[in-house]
Design a protein around this nucleic acid. Structure first.
Lengths: 218, 218
DNA sequence: ACTAAAAGTGAGTGATTACTCACTTTTAAA
DNA sequence: TTTAAAAGTGAGTAATCACTCACTTTTAGT
C-alpha cells in the first residue's frame, strides 16, 4: 500500500488516531482509489482493515464522512505552498525569472502528487459526483490558489517575461501542461519508461516558449 | 437532455432500435453522466425511461453491457477523423503549416466534444474502474490515434515546423493543451463567460510557440 | 384472421448495502 | 483495585440492488 509511505499524521493533519482508525483510513484510501467510493462497501473496508464494520461508524457518522475525512486534508495541503507571505519579495529573491518559478512549481507539484497519489486519485475521480467536494475544491483551490497565481502572473507580465494575455488563460495553459504531464506520468502510464529529467525540461521549455513575453530570457 | 440534440442513429452507429430502447439509452446516458455508473440503479434508469426494469434486460444482458453499448461507439467515433487515407497528400494540400492543422484539429475536437459531451463524460469518469473500457481505449485511441499522430508530427518536424523532440512528448503537450482548454470550457466551467474565438487563438498560439521548430512561419 | 416471434411487464429473488445497537473489551483516571 | 469512559464488536435491520421469469401485449408475416 503506497500510502504507507506517508506518515499518518501527515495524512490527517496531526489528529490523534487510534490504531484501528488508521487501518480504516488506509484501507478506505486503497479501495476508494481502486474501485471508486460508490462501488466500495463499508464491509469491504472493514475486512481489509481487520476491524468490525461497526468500528467505522464508531469514528465516522456516515460513509460520506469517511470520504470527506480523507479528501479534505489533501486539498488543504495542496494550497499550502501558495500561501506565502510577502509574495513579491519571495519572487524577486528566489525566482527572478519565470523559468525558475516554473521549474520549482513543477517539481513541487510533482512531489505533492507522488506523496498523495491515491488521495488525489480519489479526489479527481469523485469530484464529478459529490457537490460537497466540488464546493470544497472551489473554496480551496478555485479561490485561494487562483488568487495567488494571478499575482504571480501579473508580476512576471510586468517584467515582460510573460505575454500580455488574461491571467486565467495563463493559468489554464500552465496548469494543463503541468498536470497533463504529471497525470500521464503518474496516473495514466506509470509503468512506462519515463526520462523524467528530459520530460520535465521539455514541459518547462514548452510553457516558457508558449507564453514568452517581449522580455524573456534567451 | 442535451443528447437529444443527437440523432439516435449517430449514437448507436445506425443500429435499429425500438422506441423503448432509445429511451433506455438516453436515460442511462443522463444518469451515468450525472451520478456515475455504480451509483445509478437499473431501477432509476427504467423509471426515467418510462419502461419496466425487465425491459432493460430484454435488450442488454447486464448493466455493464448497457454501459459498453453507450461508450464503445463514442470511442469509435473519436478515432474516425484520424483514419485518413494518403495522409501525406492531405497534409500537403490542406495543411501546409502546422498552424492550419492545429486549428482544424482543435475545432474538430471541440465539435466532437460538444456533440458527445455526456458520453465523453461517462467515458472519462468510468475508465479508472473498468478494465474493459481501459482496454478498448488503448486499442482505439492509444494505438490508432497515436500512430497516425506520430506520422503527423514527423511530417511537420521534417519541414522544420516543429521542434525535434520525441513524438510522444509532442503528443502529450499538444493534447494536454487542447483538452485542458476543452475540458475547462465545457466540463469544469461551462457556465463561465468564454470568449471562444480568443481562447482558441491563444491556445493555438501557445502550442505553436511552445513547439516551434527552426522553420516555423512567423 | 391466425400464428409465432418479438417486445414489454412487474412481481419476486437472493444478495448486498449502510447503518444501528446491545453488548463486550480495553483504556485511563482516581 | 475500581470505575467510568472510550473503543470495538458482530448480529440484525430495512432498504436497495441486478437480475429472472411467467405472463401479457404488440408486431409482422402468411
Amino acid at each position: 500500500m503506497t500510502d504507507h509511505n506517508l506518515k499518518m499524521d501527515e495524512l490527517m493533519d496531526g489528529e490523534e488516531l487510534t490504531e484501528k482508525q488508521k487501518k480504516i483510513i488506509v484501507s478506505a484510501i486503497e479501495s476508494f482509489a481502486e474501485k471508486g467510493y460508490s462501488a466500495t462497501s463499508t464491509s469491504e473496508i472493514a475486512k481489509k482493515a481487520g476491524v468490525a464494520e461497526g468500528t467505522i461508524f464508531r469514528h465516522y457518522k456516515t460513509k460520506k464522512d469517511l470520504l470527506l475525512a480523507i479528501v479534505a486534508p489533501v486539498m488543504t495541503r495542496f494550497v499550502a505552498p501558495f500561501i506565502i507571505k510577502d509574495l513579491k519579495k519571495v519572487l524577486d529573491q528566489d525566482y527572478e525569472h519565470v523559468e525558475d518559478f516554473l521549474t520549482a512549481m513543477l517539481e513541487n507539484r510533482r512531489d505533492f502528487l507522488i506523496k498523495n497519489l491515491s488521495t488525489v486519485k480519489i479526489l479527481v475521480q469523485e469530484i464529478p459526483f459529490h457537490p460537497e467536494l466540488k464546493d470544497l475544491f472551489k473554496e480551496h483551490i478555485g479561490r485561494k490558489v487562483y488568487d495567488r497565481f494571478e499575482e504571480i502572473v501579473v508580476h512576471y507580465q510586468a517584467k515582460g517575461q510573460i505575454i500580455e494575455i488574461p491571467a486565467y488563460s495563463v493559468f489554464r495553459m500552465m496548469f494543463s501542461s503541468i498536470f497533463g504531464y504529471l497525470i500521464a506520468r503518474y496516473m495514466i502510464l506509470p509503468e512506462a519508461d519515463w526520462d523524467d529529467e528530459a520530460e520535465t525540461k521539455r514541459t518547462v521549455e514548452f510553457i516558457l516558449h508558449g507564453l514568452a513575453g517581449p522580455n524573456v530570457k534567451k
